[in-house]
Design a protein around this nucleic acid. Structure first.
Lengths: 283, 283
DNA sequence: TTTATAGATGATTTTAACTCATCTATACTA
DNA sequence: TAGTATAGATGAGTTAAAATCATCTATAAA
């Protein structure tokens, strides 16, 4: 096409505003630039687009036609751009209650301060809005998931509130909170393996099961009871000295946090956010 | 808008062709230019538009969305431009049979040779196609028409084939062809005024009336008879020595050729054609 | 009439766009 | 499984398009 797009943009603005000066203001140009663009356009098309009566201008019939097409065309493009800019400056994450409440939400502010211009929106539950461009961080079976999608493989250990005395596994019965996933297809939390590793198979343990790790951890802290749970979720609480470990060895599990098709997230904000979350969760 | 339209054009082509190189060929640019444009775009939008796997590229979800919008938008604009270019390179004229046959069609070729790139289409009759952008050259009452719309005011005179002897008005009866317009609202052809001016009021004249000047002129030439008609239509035939005058004075009339809203024709081809027609008809 | 404003026009300057040279990764070929 | 050709990325340098400035004209408002 032998005409310049900028000339068309100038024309579109001038046609819409009915004035070269107003068009110039809108596009942050001088009226001279608009005038040059339009006369260039008219020359190339061999068609007058404006009637000029001294300082007054009015669209010709041909100008009206072209103005309709350019307005529609540019509006379509601009709408799409605005949408993309909005998408590019916002990260929407949906994940489990536990990861959201114990890791993401407490760290959200830090991320936003390091990355001005990116706002983060965290939601939990059954994908509240099914909009695209929302990053799901799911909890699942690492053996069934593409390795490149995994953000963090889960290890488990026993934790207690920071003031607690170390438990004596051999003597009295010990109350231990643990989690039984609502989703039965998930691997169980690896309590047996943990007991084996730590030589505690025969201990007298009274289990209480929660369906989300979050609740078990909070309840354990409130009641001064032990909880068997993810090392990921407890990382912050350990660092803040609200939880403690008791010299036991953590045990690896087949559970993990992952993002389906992680590489397909194309906004740079999303990539940056995911990199940051991986850093947050790595030891 | 903070992104360049040229970058969007480059993106649109690359998205449509699925290759920077092909896009570059299409836009007569180097692949480097496309690459720069697209990475500029991605940077400004904070969104990746293509997945790159080495030398293979594929649109991201965001890229697909933007590609749809840009393709639609640019196509809309380009269609309109093509239409305007077509309109700008063609002049369509509709006029009376007489003007068409005796002036415009014989001169059409000359105009097209002086103005390469402009093609002329001449039609007669009741506006064969009511399309816009067709210039009507009408025959009408000069007293009822905007002065600026008039192309040529009509004068009338008596003509005969070039071999004829001058008529002797006073002696024998003279046969004279003349025109009676089908359209009764038009002023009559000014035969009375012409006789007065030339001092021939009492002559013995046998009138034969045609409803188009063209027919009267052609018939008069064929039968070696005099015809009272427009000086405009006979101009070419006089110059070609196919018709002659006999020393009589022409008489002005209220008839004229005109173009309704002449100034509203905005293609430069149309303006040039009308200027040329005026030149053609001026003495 | 005077003044202020919008636009046209031509020369000059600035900036954005394009290319060139170089490099990397991948696909094709032998 | 090198060897070659091709697509694209990257940074520096060049060019051409686009913007401005200065000047001028026509019109609307005061």
């Amino acid at each position: 096409m032998q005409v310049s797009l900028q000339a068309l943009k100038a024309f579109e603005a001038a046609a819409r505003r009915g004035s070269f000066k107003l068009a110039a203001d809108e596009l942050s140009l001088t009226p001279t630039a608009i005038s040059h663009h339009i006369s260039n356009l008219e020359g190339r098309l061999n068609v007058n687009l404006f009637h000029r009566q001294g300082r007054r201008i009015a669209l010709t019939k041909a100008g009206i036609r072209l103005a309709e097409a350019t307005s529609d065309g540019f509006r379509k493009i601009e709408n799409s751009l605005e949408e993309l800019v909005a998408v590019g400056s916002k990260v929407r994450v949906t994940t489990t209650s536990s990861l959201a409440a114990m890791i993401l939400i407490p760290s959200q502010n830090e991320f936003e301060q390091i990355n001005p211009g990116i706002s983060v929106e965290i939601s939990t539950g059954e994908s509240i809005d099914n909009q695209s461009y929302t990053i799901p961080i799911r909890f699942g079976d690492a053996t069934a998931i593409e390795a490149s999608d995994i953000i963090k493989s889960e290890s488990f250990n026993v934790f207690g509130a920071s003031g607690m005395k170390p438990p004596s596994w051999s003597n009295e019965p010990v109350t231990l909170f643990t989690t039984e996933w609502k989703n039965k297809t998930l691997p169980d939390s690896p309590l047996e393996a943990w007991l084996t590793i730590n030589g505690l198979e025969g201990s007298n343990i009274k289990l209480k099961k929660f369906d989300q790790e979050l609740f078990g951890i909070q309840q354990a802290m409130a009641e001064n009871v032990l909880v068997f749970c993810s090392t990921t979720l407890t990382k912050r609480l350990l660092e803040a000295n609200l939880l403690q470990q008791f010299g036991t060895q953590p045990v690896k599990s087949d559970l993990c946090y992952y993002v389906p098709n992680k590489r397909s997230f194309e906004t740079r904000s999303a990539v940056r956010f995911l990199d940051w979350v991986e850093g947050l969760l790595s030891p």
